[in-house]
């Protein structure tokens, strides 16, 4: 099958994300990248766990003082729901429903912005209420590096999905862009996978003590 071929609802292949050689390579290469990302985040998690609550003196806030359960729950729900909406987008991609796919990608992007907004509010709150800044202690540096790196991934993912949506807004679905959408959705799910460990290891375990 050729990437330039025009498809209809009837002729669209069952696995468009792996129908061409380029798509197969993209799929394989992206999973290799995700394996590397796992190691990268593991090193940040390990650093955080080693440096948790390591502060120079008792005037510095500790994990159990700063974290807020309701805000973390809101952020988690936003990101988890955005993961489902991107599954919906890929469901419509496989059924050759371009407009429905774009609508669900749009919802995913909005939820992603909601998450990012809650994180910006949170960081701003820590800096102003607790003087918990990037350079204030080993604990704060490790915290902002880990959670901020995840936030940077969310930002990058949003930019990626938005660019794909704009670039392909008039193109419709073909075997050239279907693998691009699929790989972007894999990246978005991976961001949620990392967040599951962040809310568990950083926030929930931080509040337990």
């Amino acid at each position: 099958m050729q990437a330039e071929e025009k498809f209809t609802y009837e002729t669209w292949p069952a696995s468009p994300e792996r129908a061409t050689l380029e798509a197969k390579n993209k799929f394989l290469g992206f999973w290799l990248f995700l394996g590397g990302e796992t190691v990268l985040f593991a090193s940040l998690f390990a650093t955080y766990l080693a440096l948790k609550d390591k502060v120079p003196d008792s005037t510095h806030a500790l994990a159990k003082d700063i974290f807020d359960l309701p805000l973390t729950l809101v952020a988690t729900m936003l990101l988890l729901t955005s993961s489902l909406t991107s599954v919906y987008a890929m469901y419509h991609m496989k059924n050759f429903a371009f407009k429905k796919m774009m609508v669900w990608l749009g919802v995913t992007v909005l939820l992603g912005f909601g998450f990012l907004g809650s994180e910006i509010y949170e960081f701003n709150h820590y800096v102003h209420e607790y003087h918990h800044t990037f350079t204030s202690s080993a604990f704060s540096s490790a915290f902002y590096t880990l959670v901020g790196f995840h936030g940077a991934h969310v930002t990058f993912g949003l930019a990626w999905i938005i660019s794909l949506m704009i670039r392909n807004s008039k193109r419709g679905l073909n075997l050239y862009n279907a693998p691009k959408f699929y790989v972007a959705s894999l990246y978005w799910h991976f961001i949620d996978v990392v967040w599951v460990f962040i809310f568990t290891v950083v926030y929930l375990m931080g509040m337990v003590g």
Partner: peptide
């Protein structure tokens, strides 16, 4: 790829 990453992750966290 992923399980190699997970294995490395486990070793890194345990080490640190």
């Amino acid at each position: 790829f992923l399980f190699t990453g997970v294995f490395m992750a486990f070793v890194i966290v345990l080490t640190f």
